[in-house]
Design a protein around this nucleic acid. Sequence first.
DNA 1: TCTGGGGTCCTAGGACCC
DNA 2: TCTGGGGTCCTAGGACCC
Length: 416
Amino acid sequence: MFALVDGNNFYVSCERVFNPLLEGHPVIVLSNNDGCVISRSQEAKQIGFKMAEPAFKRKELIEKHGVAVFSSNYTLYGDMSNRMMRTLEQFSPEVEVYSIDEAFLNLQGICTNLLDYGHNIRATILKNLGLPVGVGIAKTKTLAKIANKMAKKYSGVFVIDSERRLDWALRNTPIEDVWGIGRQYTKLLAKNGVKTAFDFSLLDSNWVKQHMSVVGLRTREELRGVSCMSIETVAKAKRNIATTRAFGKKLSNFTLISEAVSNYAVRCAEKLRKQNSIARFVTIFIHTDPFNPSEQYIYKSITVTMPEPSSSNTEIVKAALAGLEKIFIPNLRYKKAGVIVSDITTEQFVQGNLFESANREKIKQITAVTDKLNGIFGRDMVRLAAQGFSNDWKLKQEKLSPCYTTRWEELPKVKA
DNA sequence: TCTGGGGTCCTAGGACCC
DNA sequence: TCTGGGGTCCTAGGACCC
């Protein structure tokens, strides 16, 4: 049996933990740059806020209902997520962290009363962290996902443990709510008369394979109670790593854009080092505003191959800037840029270069020292000149809450 | 004025190998 | 009538997830 534990309105709930007055009020959290609505409290959903809707389009709604608005605070959410995952480890030796607010647990042979166990998980997370979660339990991951949806609708925990419950759950799950069925497949399936998970589970397997590949076939099997996906407890090393951001405002100045790109490149290099990887390719892209009909939309990208795979700040920044120079067109108003590193391998497999100098060793030492210094004194305390000090390209975050759990200066104060 | 930022997997087809 | 029979690697595109 698998359990899926999923935070309710996770980002909103994280904000509420440290700001209990928000309880019962409509709250929304915005994406980077305060762009779209990406987390909504129950009250906000009822008022009519939709997922991923641009916030500026709902200004009246925000004002009319006195909605509490927050910029994304990933430092806070990431830390709360870690605490949640650590807590879940008490309940199973096999925990798969599936996303920032979700985890699968293998419950095979762990308990006799699954419903009680689910409620115990829920109560523990609520007590220890102040976060409400839903717990869905079933024979396959896909069914656990469905059970989780049911849990959130009803009492917080839902177990699919009989044919009768399975049948009921499948008949009451619209096809577009099934894990692995997105917009395109929903359209295709609707054309073929499939409206619910139940309908899909009855489809001919050859038809499914032909139209939806083995991925769709797995989903069909999982809905019928045949487990095709196991728990993956160790996170696999990423095969692509990206840092891409819209600028706080539109930019034309090459120097400013190159500072932004340098910083994104450094973030990529850090992520590589964190998983002990190196990359050979550095892709960089820039584009203008895709939403403004009065301006021509221009998107440019290029992939630079580094002489040797690397995870060093200097080398990745160098490659990224070389790419930027090639694709940059003056006098355009750019809205967004990004750096992606790929062809990633583990550091130990690095192919030695015959002509390699002592340079590599030196770069490694410098990286170790700067990482250590920045670890102690804060990100970018020691930085490349190319990263600059400008704020012009930085994110808009006008409603940022404090990093309550990760910065001494921002710890909440309690009067007792 | 204002529209996010990450990722994965699968398939088909072409180039190339012996 | 019959035209060898395996392979691998790469890329683009399409689907999906949170």
